[in-house]
Amino acid sequence: MQESIHWNYTTVLNIVFLLFAAVLTIRFLRTGGPEMLRMMSDSHHEPGDHKHQHHH
């Protein structure tokens, strides 16, 4: 394994996929994602007790 970052196919792929991840994250933020994450972190919810509602 190389010990530093070089301009190669891994770097290109990482940039492309980071952009893709950013698109998904923006959609997540604009569609009630943070609220869903708060529900997920709430350990008092029992599995199957609720269904997440989508926001559009």
Binding site: L24, T25, F28, T31, G33, L37, H55
Partner: peptide, 10 residues
């Protein structure tokens, strides 16, 4: 697409 983005971040 919204569900995919939520599962992805989750």
């Amino acid at each position: 697409r919204t569900a995919i983005s939520h599962f992805f971040v989750m």
